[in-house]
Amino acid sequence: MSVTAAARIGAARDRYGGTALPVLAGAGPLALRRTRAARRGEARVTVVGAMSGPLGGDRLRIEVDVAAGARLTVDSAAATVSLPGRERRQARYDVRLTVGEDAELRWLPEPVIAARGSDLRMTTRVHLAPGARLVLREELVLGRHGEEAGHLTSRLTVEQAGRPLLDQELAFGPGAAPGWDGPAVLGPYRGVGQLLLVPGPTPGPALPLPPLTSRTALAGGGVLLMSLAPRTAFAQSAAAEVAAAEAAAAEAAALTG
């Protein structure tokens, strides 16, 4: 039996300069917990997987709306493991993020792991108002330890003030377009991570990047870090590299004020 579930988070600035959560509605496997925020003025929500999944045929959706001036971090308690399930149908996972003027969203979920035999289509669409700030991390892992990858297609579309900022789709695993595991796309690597910072940190001194990582300024503003990792133990490799790069970027921002 497949699951259809939509969770919603709404954050708004309260009268004390903090962030309230007028909407916090988990659904099905997407249970939501308000957790302790690391920074003043910010709210934090952790997505707690109430069951394993998504499984084949599931349709999961998360909608996040950060109203003007509010600051929200969303993370997750564990990796999302895409599994085949009994129904041999594609699962869907759709994320819709809206960030208002002078608001900030840090969207920092744990990796999505495409287990063998799974088939998942993810879409992440982000609408940023003018002056909105975003830190977005996406990490995809090709199979659990020692197994071949399932099929995963992930499209990330970010617009700011109605203009396209980033539009990227990555597909891998059985059923993906030929060449996905070849020398132009993913080669032998088993994990791919992206970290998007909008606006980008002010360019500081040139910081060394880990291997297989690029840091690039987007045409419409913002900086994208992209990283590939050799093993499925992504948390210890690419995620750490991306985190190091994020720290380096934040450090650069601090250095330049």
Partner: peptide, 9 residues
């Protein structure tokens, strides 16, 4: 919008 991480990096 198909992307190729190795080409980009």
């Amino acid at each position: 919008a198909a992307s190729a991480p190795l080409l980009e990096i």
